[in-house]
């Protein structure tokens, strides 16, 4: 049987095509364009092949930044996901305190990212900042502008403060959508608290947790603003993550070719890891 063909439909999809083209395809292709050519300004381009990709992959800077990035993302996920889930589990289900909790939890998410960086920057100053002074007052030598460990500690703490709410709110939304009958059945079946979590809450939160992990993975892997404001990638290059390294290359040194190549590699890493996470967390769905 022949299907009716209506070419007018293309006309209706056109606006979306234009939108996607301008906000994704054209910028991405421009980056691809830069990544395989040498440019000296005045729109003069010469072909460079895979030269820039080789340069990036052979540079120690890139591998070091990637290692730091992976470590940072791993620590942040390892803290924020369980902590967010734990907070969601202890939040009240109804009554006055629900709104109080929700508003308090949303506050960190509403603060502009550079303001978050500036806030923590000031708060963690060892001589006048509340946090910095307090830690030093405990007899611990803490100075995030001089010691890599202090800088990392502050950045992780800041990210946990900033983003755990998101995980908690997502999990909370998932938890309240579990029908009461499940809890009632569990009570009748004599299930203990742990069994309720393991066999009802966790399975029902699978999708929500997948989304939370993906969001937090992508965001933390692309983190730029807060460490840039807070430490500027220092001390030395101790907190120079991929994005900071990239900006130094592209904007600082104006190495557009290598920066474009690095952008593409960076993008592919995020895409691959996101796919991996998604597949791993969803693999039980079909069986």
């Amino acid at each position: 049987m022949k299907k009716p063909v209506n070419n007018k439909a293309w006309f209706l999809v056109l606006p979306v095509f234009l939108l996607v083209a301008f906000n994704a395809l054209i910028p991405l292709m421009t980056v691809v364009n830069y990544s395989v050519q040498e440019t000296f300004g005045d729109n003069v381009f010469t072909w460079a092949g895979v030269q820039w990709f080789q340069d990036v992959l052979r540079s120690d800077n890139f591998w070091n930044a990637l290692q730091r990035q992976l470590l940072f993302t791993f620590i942040v996920l390892a803290i924020e996901i369980p902590l967010g889930l734990g907070i969601a589990l202890t939040m009240p289900k109804q009554g006055f305190w629900v709104s109080v909790c929700l508003v308090l939890m949303s506050l960190p998410l509403l603060i502009p990212w550079n303001v978050v960086g500036a806030m923590w920057n000031i708060m963690a100053l060892p001589d006048i900042g509340l946090l910095g002074k307090a830690i030093n007052g405990l007899g611990i030598n803490y100075n995030y502008t001089r010691q890599p460990v202090s800088a990392w500690f502050t950045l992780v703490l800041m990210d946990v403060w900033h983003w755990t709410s998101l995980v908690a709110l997502l999990c909370y939304a998932g938890l309240v959508s579990i029908p009461d009958a499940y809890y009632q059945a569990a009570k009748v079946d004599g299930a203990r608290r742990w069994a309720v979590f393991r066999y009802i809450q966790l399975p029902k939160l699978r999708h929500v947790l997948t989304i939370a992990v993906l969001l937090r993975f992508m965001d933390s892997f692309m983190i730029y603003t807060e460490p840039q404001v807070m430490t500027g990638g220092g001390p030395g290059s101790a907190t120079t993550f991929l994005s900071i390294d990239l900006v130094k290359k592209g904007i600082g040194q104006f190495d557009l070719g290598p920066a474009a190549a690095m952008s593409i590699i960076y993008f592919l890493i995020i895409l691959a890891l996101s796919w991996l996470f998604y597949t791993l967390m969803m693999r039980h769905q079909e069986t």
């Binding site: 009632q184 009748v188 004599g190 066999y199």
Partner: peptide, 21 residues
């Protein structure tokens, strides 16, 4: 007394199953 202490069984209107089991 709690449902467990009463030792009763109840079947609900909509099926309740433990998905992962």
């Amino acid at each position: 007394a709690t449902p467990e202490e009463r030792n009763i069984a109840q079947v609900f209107q909509f099926p309740v199953i433990y998905d992962t089991m």
